[in-house]
């Protein structure tokens, strides 16, 4: 290669990078959802003046924090080509245990650590059965969905436990509901969590292994990835985020409840899929998941503000999920076709 060629090719590389920076946004699988948020937001801002207020936007973020935290863990699971149906039940179990140990006199930090460990442990049960006993993830998590829910009900005979007046709860309450200037603390917490979870996916060998297992399990195994261990770790992470989600939930509700909101699991999975993480595994990321959570949150908020009965919300979220994944698939197809032509 002559010096001039080298120079030209470097210039071409630079150009290619600049171009990709420009097109990367529009090519991102979550771009459609982001655009939709803006359009829906614009529409709501005009029709419902309350929508565009700072308080309302922060309210959307606060009320979707639980879903967001659960969805981060679910993103890992789905990228790896699996699915965890048990997260909502797992969170309910963690929630009840938190209520009981607070009543039993645990102080703030030991209680939180216990719940995180419990979440990780319940996730590890999922992971162990899937990885080492080799039972299908659908069967295992469908089973534990029922088991963890039942466990949560048994713990206090189905009655919820108010922790509002418990002094050990106060710091958690302050954290979840507090503000730093105009920003809710929980927003900062969400963003930090997003950075950590995204960073692990993108910049760690473990993150690469998650993608590798989702896109080709056998190729991952043959290239030296300890597939069972990584899968187990992914379910532990999902359990950990479910435990974390349960703490956020209690912080908002000020009581531990064994009732599992039946829409939570659907919302979590829908957010991940709307965010461009494919059910088939190997693709996606946590940033898209954030976009997905926000999209569903904005729509839900808009429906509430417009006075639409909450009975309609499930129908709308369901339609959005199907449409978003369908459109995402079409976009991907056309992009692949274009790319295939170029090479």
């Amino acid at each position: 290669m002559s010096a001039e060629d080298a120079h030209n090719s470097r210039a071409a590389d630079r150009f290619a990078h600049r171009q990709s920076a420009l097109t990367r946004l529009t090519h991102a699988p979550w771009f459609g959802a982001l655009l939709s948020i803006l359009l829906v937001g614009l529409f709501l801002a005009f029709t419902q003046p309350v929508f565009a207020t700072w308080a309302n936007v922060m309210n959307i973020i606060k009320s979707n924090s639980v879903v967001f935290v659960l969805a981060l863990g679910a993103t890992y699971v789905i990228i790896a080509g699996a699915i965890d149906l048990s997260v909502a039940s797992l969170a309910a179990a963690c929630s009840m245990v938190y209520g009981l140990i607070l009543v039993a006199g645990f102080s703030t930090v030991p209680a939180i650590v216990t719940i995180l460990l419990l979440g990780a442990f319940l996730g590890a049960i999922n992971g162990f059965l899937i990885s080492y006993v080799r039972i299908s993830f659908l069967v295992v998590t469908l089973g534990t969905l029922s088991i963890y829910q039942s466990f949560a009900l048994i713990l206090n005979s189905g009655t919820s436990i108010s922790v509002y007046s418990n002094p050990a709860f106060k710091p958690l309450y302050a954290f979840v509901n507090g503000s730093l200037g105009p920003f809710p603390v929980i927003l900062i917490f969400d963003l930090v969590l997003l950075l950590i979870m995204g960073g692990i996916l993108r910049y760690s060998a473990f993150g690469r292994a998650v993608y590798a297992i989702g896109s080709n399990r056998e190729a991952a195994r043959l290239n030296g990835i300890n597939v069972p261990l990584v899968v187990m770790a992914i379910f532990i992470i999902a359990g950990l985020t479910a435990g974390l989600g349960s703490l956020v939930q209690i912080g908002r509700l000020t009581s531990a409840s064994a009732d599992v909101d039946p829409t939570i699991l659907m919302t979590v999975l829908a957010a991940v899929l709307i965010g461009g993480t494919a059910f088939t595994g190997g693709e996606g990321g946590v940033f898209g998941t954030m976009v997905g959570v926000l999209f569903l949150g904005v729509v839900q908020n808009g429906l509430t503000l417009s006075g639409v009965s909450s009975f309609w919300q499930g129908m709308v979220s369901g339609l959005i999920l199907i449409a978003a994944v369908w459109i995402g698939g079409l976009r991907q197809l056309s992009r692949r076709r274009k790319q295939a032509d170029r090479t």
Binding site: Y211, N216, A220, T280
Partner: peptide, 9 residues
């Protein structure tokens, strides 16, 4: 395709 490549990556 089945054992070596990650086609979506």
């Amino acid at each position: 395709k089945g054992a070596a490549l990650m086609l979506v990556r």
